[in-house]
Amino acid sequence: MFKKQIVRLARIAVAMGAMIGGPAAAQEYPVKPIQMIVPFGQGGATDQVARLMAAPLEEALGQPVVIINQPGAGGAIGLSNLTKARPDGYTVAIGSDSTLGARPLMSETGYDADSFTMIARLVQIPSGVAVRVDSPYETLNDLVQALKTERLAYSGSGVASGPHLAMAVFLAQQGVQATFVNSDSNQDGLVKLLSGEVDFLTGGGSNFPALFGEDGQSDIRVLGLAAEERWSFMPDVPTYREQGFDYVNSQWFGLVAPAGVPQEIVDELSSKIKAMVETPEFSQRLEGFFFNAAYLGPTEMDGLVKEDMQNVRPVLAEIGLLKN
């Protein structure tokens, strides 16, 4: 009777020992569930992209992918907690353009861009700018010209968020200035635009298509999207380049892990993600959110973050957001 119990206890102890102690050798990765931190709340776009990925990724890796929502500070809290996790490839998180590079330049986040191992970029959305439909500005050029003589106000979701920085860098390139009024979310910014509190709104392109009816009627007018070519979801909106402004900028999400994850694991994960992102089903599901699948490997993603940081640093210094 007691013997049986002791044997059972011993079995449990061995099993637990194996779970805790067994360092994952790269060739057998993954041997246990993978935790994916989503640094935003349930129901948001990031959360939905993560949940979209979880199922096919589980299938490809043969282990459950568990999603943990840790919202706060525009995504910085979840990422800060990620950097405290063991770099063994079993804790990953969804990072974005502004949270990885720009945020640590501004406040004490407990991390910087070097605290991460980049794994893969997943999706991107072109940055864009919109005005009210009754606004006098018909083109991007109208707006830039007006800014040379007048002080206009604009809004976007969050101080130093991707949309804010996209516009701040653009304005700095054109040598003009505008007053930024912060909003908690893109919808909050839309309220400020429609109520006349601000003159234009900067936001990811994905926020705009749902505001247009079938015959193109809307309360807003999108002046331009900073994509390389016309965006498939809004083919009527010209790019910045077409209007004579050489500026390309997008908001994106990617998968990151704490710094120091073994190269084999990074390669394993990013190759599985590449295969998944490039399936037509994934792109089709993304269409529901007006996102574009946009895989980039670890090295390219790292380069992108560093490049964004270089562009953003002087602008942050100019608007007084750079931390001391």
């Binding site: 500070a73 525009g74 910085a76 501004m106 406040s107 004490e108 101080v159 130093a160 912060n182 908690d184 007084g320 957001l321």
Partner: peptide
């Protein structure tokens, strides 16, 4: 993080 200017306060 201050909601208007993005500066950290009392952290």
């Amino acid at each position: 993080i201050d909601p208007v200017s993005g500066v950290g306060r009392f952290m």
